[in-house]
Amino acid sequence: MREIAYWQAINEALSEEMTKDPGVFIMGEDVAIYGGAYAVTRGLHAKFGDERVRDTAISEAAIVGAGLGAAITGMRPVVEIMYVDFMGIAMDQLNNQIAKIRYMFGGKTKVPLVIRTEGGAGRTLGAHHSQSLEAWFTHIPGIKVVMPSTPYDAKGLLKAAIREDNPVVYIEHKMLYNTKGQVPEEEYLLPIGKADVKKQGKDVTLLSWSLTLLHCLKAAEELEKEGVSVEVIDLRTLAPLDIDTIVNSVKKTHRLVIAHEAWKTGGFAGEIAAQVMEKAFDYLDAPVCRVCGADVPMPKAPNLEKLAIPNKDTIKKAVKELLV
């Protein structure tokens, strides 16, 4: 099968859905002529023109909120927020308008809106361009949250998100854009809300998403050589949460390690741990372990940045400590 990069998989998903459905359009900062800060929308402006690939002013609240207005009146917008760090400016639109409108109006409206954004550390950009804020969004009922780790998932899940009649926050990772993976030529969709068991194992379940999932796979590979059998699950969608896949795995391995780049305090691992306790307490042989980002703003210094987020070695260490 051909291999393409993560950014390309996203680009293809956008292009295919725009070709298929004239209601789909893109707007955001520097998405048209520039092709996106991380070049994800490159070529789309040339292909679809000014009306459907729109550069906006630097106005995050209006970008996200206008996405809602267009979505509830017959369009299927994909809006881009260049860095997830800038979502703070648009949070009222997301929390009070987008997430609630259908429920508040008795289910009489649909919100087919995708908010594509990008997060994570790794480029020493400091505190305003390195965050992992998914827990902000998972906390809000009424929004689906997708965080793919591979080109294959990125494409299939984005196509599904665009066809969804509900708001989806779709979060890419800046350190994944150039990673490559197999993606079929022929069309496919992936279901939102389904975790993916990447590797079977029996001693411990290692759960993650986005870039950290790749660290987990490497950690599992090394642990395997050291005699530890690790089951690795890529959550892919955080909301709605595929708790069944997690619980089924824990029933088999009896141990759970959750790794993510976001801050530990109030991070999504805490929610998963609570649900696993509620649903599978008797199956656990050890407390659920979290390997997460340090609870500090991301420092600029490259050594401190590395220290602030999980990596293969810290994940391995946590797994081993859980097993003794």
């Binding site: 400091g126 305003h128 401190l304």
Partner: peptide
């Protein structure tokens, strides 16, 4: 350069 001797002790960087 994110160095300890920086005016923000290497925690801010160019953007901060």
């Amino acid at each position: 350069l994110g160095k300890a001797t920086g005016c923000c002790k290497g925690k801010g960087g160019s953007l901060h």
